[in-house]
Every structure is written in structure tokens, then in C-alpha cells.
Amino acid sequence: MLARRGVRSYLDRMNLSLPFAIVGGAILGLLSSFGQFSRFVGDLIRALTDVRTWGPLTVGQMRRLGVDSLPIALFLSCFTGIVLALQASYTFTGAIPLYFVGALVTKTMILELGPVLTGLALSGRVGANIAAELGTMRVSEQIDALETMAYNPIAYLVVPRVLAGTIMVPLLVIFSNVLGIASGWITSMNVLDMTSAQFVRGSRLFYDSFDIVYCIIKSTSFGLTITVLGCYQGFNTRGGAEGVGIATTRAVVLASMMILVLDAFWALVLLQ
């Protein structure tokens, strides 16, 4: 009798609906986040019509997000090209002609490493910058002040950044590709005892004009993703400084993950 009472009291104390509540809460949270993000994207698209607001600000953002990010993008690609050339020659030794180093460096830089490495670097620099900036504005109620003054905060804060990122990231990737290939070329001539003609022959061996198109499409999507996620996380920051930190971290992590996901997506869609 006592034992039966003990079990019943234990069951009464245990909330059997808790697992369902967790799953349901997660799904609702996911759907809520998705809906919130969709509404944010909708607002972003609608704000594109407000050219007077975002137009004058876009160039400044292009300078901050694009031109100022050029050194880190070039730094990354320079060493990437060197490493690619050396690793290719290490792999090809003996069996495969060395001019294939040119093919590998060029093809890899254009199709994969240029866009992805630049995108990852910019997700850290640009995505974190945007999320922290907008998050701070949110927690300090500056965005609320803009709304109070009948400014469209999306057109004023988000659209210039998104457009700047979408335009500048492909350009950064192009410069990165050029510098990566050039560094690989120089490395091949000075370290691998290759002639310039051999490297050029290898570079042109498997080149297809679609490679450039693919690279631009991919890097454009990366720029759009980095800036939109950064703006979304910053725009929806809650709490104080801690919230800003969380938003910044989320922006970087999500942007990096989405870059890799998009990398696979575009390869699947465009290269098959």
C-alpha cells in the first residue's frame, strides 16, 4: 500500500508531458525563427524601393565591408596559392607532369578556395562587424529611435550593408583568385623549377569560361548570406552586452555554416 502510494506520488511529481513540450517548443521556436527571418527578408525586399534612404549609405558600406576587407582576403589567398602549388607538386612528383600544378592551382582557386576562404574570412570580419554594430544599436534603442522618427531602419541600416556585401564579396573573391594564382605561379617558377609557359599551359588546360561564372555566382551568394545573417542577428538582438555577444557569435557561426552549405549546394546544382 505504501509502495503504491510512493509510485503514484512519484508519477504525480514527474511531468510526463515534458518531452512533448520540449519537442513542440523546439518546433515552434524553429518555425517562429523561420517566420521572423522570412518577415525580415520581406522587409528587406520592400526596403529596396526606398532608394533615397539606402542609396547614399551604400558606398560607405562598400568601403567598410569591401575595400577594407581586401587586405585580409588577399593575405589568405596569397598563402593559399603558395601552399596549393607546393602540395600539388608534392603529390604529382614522378607520375604526372608538373604543368598540372598550374591546372590544379587555377582550377582550385577559382572554383573552391577563393570563394570559400574569402567567404569564411568575411563571415568573421564582416558578419561579426554587422551583428555587433546592429546589436549594439538595438540594445541601445537607437533602432527604436529611428522607427520613432519614421525612418525605415531596414532601408537605413540593413539594405546598404546587404547590397555592399553582395557586390563587394565577388570582387574580393576575384582579387583573391588573381593573387592566389599569381602566388602559385611565382612559387612554381622559383621553388618547383617550372617555367612560366608550363604553368600557363596547365592553367589553360582545363579552363572553362563557366568557371568564372560559377565563382561569381557562388561568391555573390556568400556575400548575401553573410550580410543578411549578420543584419538579422544584430537586428534581433535581445538583452544588453551579453546579447550583442551572442548575436555576434551566432552571426559568424551561422554564416560560416551557410557558406559551406551553399558551397555544396552550388556544386550540386551547377557542376553536375
Binding site: M62, L70, L171, I174, R204, Y207
Partner: peptide
């Protein structure tokens, strides 16, 4: 930067082809 990037892309495409 924008013009240089576009020209670089075009020149690179022509050179590689």
C-alpha cells in the same frame, strides 16, 4: 576597386581561355 575587379575578371577570363 569595383572597376578594377570587373576588369580583372574579364581579363582573367580572356587570358585563361
Amino acid at each position: 576597386v569595383v572597376i578594377a575587379g570587373i576588369l580583372t575578371a574579364l581579363a582573367g577570363a580572356v587570358w585563361l581561355s
